[in-house]
């Protein structure tokens, strides 16, 4: 596990030494503050639009960071050839995959904490109430979702040689799941066979990332989700993470590496 932690430490260092995170944080901050300064019919108590906008920006930023960071990890190791001195040490390819995943996931978690801290300050300053447990739930579920996304992207990064192609495909898949994942069963019912069965199979196979998007519950001050269900969603996410990491390892294990 020491090796995995060491590898993840490098990924985290890479994230905070690159400009991506800071640019996205500043952009989110600027757009939110600009929107917050707008005057709508002389009513200073309006806050929902601000929460909605800020969370949307956080979601976009987190996805960009997660996909961008994960997509370049293994291709960059191969392209810059850092993989060779690394694998010349007692490091297995499974440890490389796991370390990269853990690093990206922890780095995204850190980024999320910073983003949500900003969100709490902005909304708290308007609403004067602090539903921190709800915010924690939203952050936790988003983090779990990012875990699944990172594992998927890592798998993609072994299949596709160009990080940009992998990132684009993964973004399309993830956004597609977020937007229509939960409706695929309804879509299936309106299709003739065998399309119906095919769509239903896809519906049951894809990771239902939309579960982890609880922005509406936060924006409109709904009650907490039961912790039991949060736990089950975490378990569901963990299964997909392991699945994607396992297939990534299977693909990576067979990759020929030559100096």
């Amino acid at each position: 596990m020491n090796t995995v932690w060491a590898l993840s430490g490098v990924v985290i260092k890479e994230l905070y030494r690159r400009k991506d995170f800071y640019v996205l944080l500043v952009l989110t901050g600027l757009i939110t503050l600009a929107a917050g300064s707008a005057n709508f019919f002389n009513d200073a108590k309006i806050v929902v639009y601000l929460k909605d906008l800020c969370l949307l920006l956080i979601w976009i930023s987190a996805l960009v960071i997660a996909v961008g960071t994960a997509a370049r990890q293994i291709p960059a190791e191969r392209e810059q050839r850092t993989i060779f001195p690394l694998l010349a040490k007692p490091v297995t390819r499974w440890q490389v995959i796991l370390g990269k995943f853990l690093g990206c996931w922890l780095a995204c978690g850190l980024a999320l904490v910073v983003f949500y801290a900003f969100f709490v300050v902005v909304t708290g300053s308007r609403e004067h109430h602090w539903p921190l447990l709800n915010y924690f739930q939203a952050l936790w579920l988003q983090w779990i979702m990012l875990g699944v996304v990172i594992a998927l992207v890592l798998f993609g990064s072994i299949i596709f040689s160009a990080p940009s192609a992998n990132a684009t495909i993964c973004i399309v898949v993830v956004v597609g799941i977020l937007l229509i994942g939960r409706h695929l069963n309804k879509v299936a019912l309106q299709q003739p066979e065998p399309l119906q069965t095919l769509i239903y199979v896809v519906y049951f196979l894809i990771p239902h990332l939309e579960w982890y998007d609880v922005r509406d519950l936060i924006v409109y001050d709904h009650a907490l989700i039961s912790w039991w269900h949060c736990g089950l969603a975490t378990l569901y996410g963990a299964v997909y993470v392991l699945l994607f990491l396992f297939v990534a390892w299977l693909a990576f294990r067979r990759k020929r590496l030559s100096v």
Partner: peptide, 10 residues
Amino acid sequence: PENTYYYKFL
């Protein structure tokens, strides 16, 4: 290795 392959941000 023959050429230098290390994490340049470290």
